[in-house]
Amino acid sequence: MRTTLILGLAIILLWSACKFGSDKKTLPIYGNRAPVTKTVDGKQVTDTIYQTIPPFKFVNQYGDSISNKTLNGNIYVVDFFFTTCPSICPIMHRNMLRVYETFKSTGNFKIISHTIDPKHDSVPVLKKYADKLGITGNMWWFLRGRKEDIYTIAEKNYLVAVKQDSSAAGGYIHAGYFVLIDKQKRIRGSYDGTDPKQVDQLIDDIKTLQAEPDQMIVQ
């Protein structure tokens, strides 16, 4: 009898704890982290250095250079695709279109889709693809660059697997993840771009990130 009571109480406590936690939601920060100790005003202060996206340079569908600096002050979502992809890309971009439509009129937000087949996907090919998808303006960029650079940033930095494989449909295998990057270039979420429910979650999480107070942004 007494154990039941205690158990019941524990469950109620746990439940209310969970509920309280969800009221002020913050997104986790992914990747490696390292502590640094520095001296501020004669005192030892320990700070955390998070994994961030390193400098990069690609070209978008308009032929403009896009670097890490171009994205300063933006929250952005990243994916990897190729225009002739017969498998998961159409469903990914059908879902990404929803993200685009949702945030079309908000500033400081970008979508960047890297082609993993830069040999075929030239700037005009990317422009045509964007046009056909119905993308205008500068919110959603389709980027190409050196193949090594694209594959390295995908795997090492955005943690998305890509690989050329002649046995796969279309010649490449790649994961259909949408990766959410905050204004300090840290990974804050990773979503299966082929699953509409996870894309709903991404849309919610972008809103959460947009509402994050400014003092958290200053490093």
Binding site: P90, K132, L133
Partner: peptide, 8 residues
Amino acid sequence: GEGLSALI
């Protein structure tokens, strides 16, 4: 069966 914009 909705396709995708002007692509599909």
